[in-house]
Structures are given as structure tokens and as C-alpha cells.
């Protein structure tokens, strides 16, 4: 049974949904029941970062071993990661509207994540503009590594250096300090794993499709 992890994914996702909606959460002003979004909005970003990180690993592999298959993996990982990034942006925007009162604020975390998304979309444009297979693999691998460094700066470092509405940044502590109680951890950690596994599954399907296309065109 080499697909056991897909079974785990399905079980964890169903648990995330039921537990995420029904298990007691702390009662907090402004947030109210919307605190449950934590199980769905935050893992979108974790999945995106995980997929982009794995993409970077493959780009390093491409550069060091001149491995074209690693380049194929890198592009499909970015493709899947962008889906999660878009979902994270939309869900965050909805959540912001009903807690902060605006769809979008000029917050460092928000703008940082938007810039990161644009950087990765530029990766796709860059790839599309290069004809030669070898050249495309090398140049886009270099760009991809650079893009992940920028992701760390824009999502991980800069938001922590200034004040931000977004939890986990500036003077505003993250959920894990006191908001995230044990009940929430019970759902949140499996939820993160569930969404990351789902992302990996989606990526594996994309990769297999691309390989089939490559095999057919040979």
C-alpha cells in the first residue's frame, strides 16, 4: 500500500473540518467564532511555504547535478504552491473584512505576501519566455532560489520588524502565545499536516500529468 499517506490525508482533512467547526474554542472579542479560520487560513500559507521550499530544494538539485527532472518537479511545486497562496490571500482578505473592517490593509504582512506571490508568478513568466530546455532549467533554478530567499524576507523577517495588525508580527503576539489553547492545538497541528499533505498530493498529480505529456511528446 504505497498510497497510505493519501488515506491519512483524507482522514486528517475530515477531522480538521469536523473538529475545526465543533470543538470548543476560546471566546474572544472581535474574533468570535471566526477564530476557527485559523485551521483553514493559516495552513494555506504553511502549505505554500512548504511547497515553495521543496521547489527550492529541487532547484538546488538541478543546478548541482544538471538534473532536468528536478526542474520539472520545481515548476510543478511552484504551480501547486501558488494555488495555496491565492487561497490564503482570499481567505485572509475575507477574515480581515470582518475583524479589521477592510478587505485589504497596507499591512507589512499583507503586502509582503502579495509581493511574494508576484515574485513567484514572475517565475512562471520567466519560464515561459525561455525556449531552450537546458537554459530554461538553469536560469529558472537560479531565480527560484532567489525567490525563496525573498519569501523569507517578505513573510518571515520584515513583518516582525514593524507593527502589524496581523498576529505573530511586531508588537502583536502570535496565536501560539496565549490565544492558542490546548483545544485549538488539538485541531491546528493535524490541520497543518492535513493541508500540507493535500498540497503534496495535488503536486504529485500535476507532476505525473507532466511526465505523461513529456513521455508522449518524445
Amino acid at each position: 500500500m504505497r498510497n497510505w499517506w493519501k488515506v491519512v490525508t483524507v482522514i486528517l482533512l475530515i477531522y480538521t473540518l469536523i473538529g475545526g467547526l465543533l470543538i470548543e474554542v476560546p471566546r474572544q472579542h472581535i474574533l468570535y467564532e471566526s477564530i476557527r479560520n485559523l485551521y483553514f487560513h493559516v495552513p494555506m500559507w504553511f502549505s505554500m511555504i512548504f511547497l515553495f521550499f521543496m521547489s527550492t530544494v529541487n532547484s538546488v538539485k538541478e543546478l548541482s547535478k544538471n538534473d532536468l527532472e528536478a526542474d520539472t518537479k520545481a515548476i510543478e511545486l511552484v504551480n501547486t504552491g501558488i494555488v495555496f497562496g491565492i487561497l490564503g490571500t482570499i481567505t485572509g482578505s475575507i477574515w480581515a473584512k470582518y475583524t479589521w473592517g477592510a478587505w485589504w490593509t497596507n499591512d507589512v504582512k499583507l503586502n509582503g505576501s502579495a509581493i511574494t506571490m508576484l515574485i513567484y508568478m514572475a517565475y512562471l513568466v520567466l519560464r515561459a519566455s525561455l525556449e531552450d530546455e537546458q537554459k530554461r532549467a538553469r536560469i529558472s533554478a537560479v531565480y527560484n532560489i532567489f525567490a525563496f530567499v525573498l519569501l523569507i524576507v517578505f513573510i518571515g523577517i520584515l513583518p516582525r520588524m514593524t507593527d502589524s495588525l496581523h498576529p505573530g508580527n511586531g508588537g502583536n503576539p502570535g496565536f501560539n502565545n496565549y490565544d492558542l489553547d490546548n483545544n485549538m492545538k488539538l485541531v491546528f497541528y493535524p490541520a497543518v499536516l492535513a493541508w500540507i499533505l493535500l498540497g503534496w498530493w495535488m503536486y504529485s498529480l500535476r507532476l505525473r500529468k507532466r511526465k505523461l505529456q513529456q513521455d508522449l511528446s518524445l
Binding site: K6, L13, I14, I18, L21, M202, L205, L212
Partner: peptide
């Protein structure tokens, strides 16, 4: 009711994913 609606959607999407997986 909300839980069951969302579960239906989630399971529907998973079934869709599994069918793509099998086709591949």
C-alpha cells in the same frame, strides 16, 4: 447543517482528486 454541507463539499473534492489519480 453547516458541518454536513462542508463535509459534502470536502468529500466531493477528495473523490474528484482520487478519480484523477486513478486515471493517471
Amino acid at each position: 447543517v453547516v458541518v454536513s454541507v462542508l463535509l459534502t463539499i470536502l468529500i466531493g473534492l477528495i473523490v474528484y482528486l482520487i478519480s484523477i489519480d486513478r486515471k493517471l
